[in-house]
Nucleic acid binder design. Sequence first.
DNA 1: GTTAGCACTCGTGTTTATCGAGTGCTAATT
DNA 2: AATTAGCACTCGATAAACACGAGTGCTAAC
Lengths: 343, 343
Amino acid sequence: MNLGDRKKLILQAIIEDYINTAEPVGSRTISKKYLTGTSPATIRNEMADLEEMGYIEQPHTSAGRVPSDKGYRLYVDEIMEQKRLNDVQTDLIKKQFLDTLGEIDRLVKNASKLLSQMTQYTSIILTPQLKRTSVKQIQLLSINNKTVLAVIVTDAGIVKNCVLRVMSDVSSELLEKLNNMLNSKLVGLCMEDLQSLSLDDIARNTMPHGEIIEQLLPELIQTLIYSDTVDIHLDGAANILNLPEYCDIQKAKSFLNVLEEKELLFNVLSKSDSDMNVSIGTENQYEQFHNCSLITATYKINGKTIGSVGVIGPTRMEYSKVISIVDCMTHNLSEILTKILKG
Amino acid sequence: MNLGDRKKLILQAIIEDYINTAEPVGSRTISKKYLTGTSPATIRNEMADLEEMGYIEQPHTSAGRVPSDKGYRLYVDEIMEQKRLNDVQTDLIKKQFLDTLGEIDRLVKNASKLLSQMTQYTSIILTPQLKRTSVKQIQLLSINNKTVLAVIVTDAGIVKNCVLRVMSDVSSELLEKLNNMLNSKLVGLCMEDLQSLSLDDIARNTMPHGEIIEQLLPELIQTLIYSDTVDIHLDGAANILNLPEYCDIQKAKSFLNVLEEKELLFNVLSKSDSDMNVSIGTENQYEQFHNCSLITATYKINGKTIGSVGVIGPTRMEYSKVISIVDCMTHNLSEILTKILKG
DNA sequence: GTTAGCACTCGTGTTTATCGAGTGCTAATT
DNA sequence: AATTAGCACTCGATAAACACGAGTGCTAAC
């Protein structure tokens, strides 16, 4: 299983050259640019071995070699050296977050934009999800006599609004009572708990306002749950058209179409639970990504995972660079979000 | 200036055929498919006239004719008959809105998605903008001792949150006083007024809490103004790759790049103040759209324009169809938004 | 005013030839 | 035994040559 050192060097050369050029790389190139001490013929022999082992492939007889998914995997796991971001890049990311105090969604979207700019691939990002966060405070406000606004603050510091319509008028005293009641019943519950919450549990103990509660609560909960549908945000979709593998309009189109399947992206991204995940070509669960690679990572508030970001690119991706960037990004994002929460 | 009837028919034939096929259309085609009673030669003569008048163009000597921007303009203004949506399509739009009770942003984004699906072009939409709406109610909530949440309800029924950090602790009594004060001072002002609001005016009359107000108010206003930056939402960008004019990857790329210039799109869309605007090719203010056409329209709450939607496509756009769809869409959108507001 | 006929243009698609990068294999070299 | 030089072979890419045909403008006849 363990390749010889020279084989590794050759595989590394093939992969890194292919990442740069998108052209099959031949023995002569390697001999000239990477292993200057070794003749093409020797390299050819090694390459034949590497091909037999499945790390590289030949598009056609008279072409150079191209890395296979298996090859990229070995490269990511064992060969590539983790590139460190230079200070300029790190600062860029940090500065980005300093500029974006304010709404969390905007923060997250800006992160996505920067991510696509820095990587030159397509970035996707999942806006914070509240499932695992709990209700900290609820405040009902009367908008007009038939409309009530519920503001919910979660322990992750995220604020959600629900506009609720009620049949009968709600006086301000009643509103306050309802408010207290809701707080006493719901505070501390996480979004998931809300889903399974039985209406009876609440209504039973609040006879006087039973009918209002019965009207209001389901709508409140439903809106909350519904509004928890996280948003997928994309950036840099056009970047992929710079890549030679998408010079074929058909391929470009199918790629872009995949990017518009928001549910698919959601699944892919929300599945990623480990801190950093690299999925190469056919390793990917979904067929649509079989000739892409996907690097995903999660970001957290107070240690709780609440969202994730990802970069989609060709299997010929600058893994080392992208991983560093995504890593730096999620860490900064987590840090700033946690800081915002704590005030 | 006024073309003969036959010239109009021929122009119409050229435009409609070109819209369908994206191929230059020749005299023979017109004679066979559109003006069966007239010979190709006659049509050629007419076409020569139309070309001289600038309504059509010839890509190269031995090709058919292609409409010019001027030609499309005439077509839109005088020739084309307003297509009426069939019931299925109208229902689709109406049903769409029924399904999407809840958050306004989501509603608007879904509208955009449907728009791109129905037109098969790219749709853009501006989320509701509050500049012209006024503050109806403000409620401060304490999140923790250093953080205050301000919830602002506008007269358009849109809710905005601002998370404010304050230096010194704020007791609940103080919070209530501040709350009352803010309401008395700010309610009724529109977002634009807020911008020019002098801090002194407020602080002067509220000596006891001067320093808190001085801290809190600017941040509140700034966040409000900042959060009023409307969001641009895109859908169906990949649709344009189905069009033969974008088979050239370079063109496709430059188009997609334009779509990622959010500020540009914002300008284009927010400039559109009339109910329905068609801008064809070089008519467009921005060079980037010189070989696109843009159909924009506004939507309203209670008669106040608060946002706009648009469709971007090739100059060879199905104007009639798209105009109908956009029209139906904005009217329904306005209606449902107004209804939501009124409860 | 309309139409038929015809020579001309020019983009498109096809065929054919050439080129060259890269390979695998064998034999010579270290 | 590992490395390397040499060589015949493969095959995609590029370019040149060519035929095709859709479409035009013009002229002359209807």
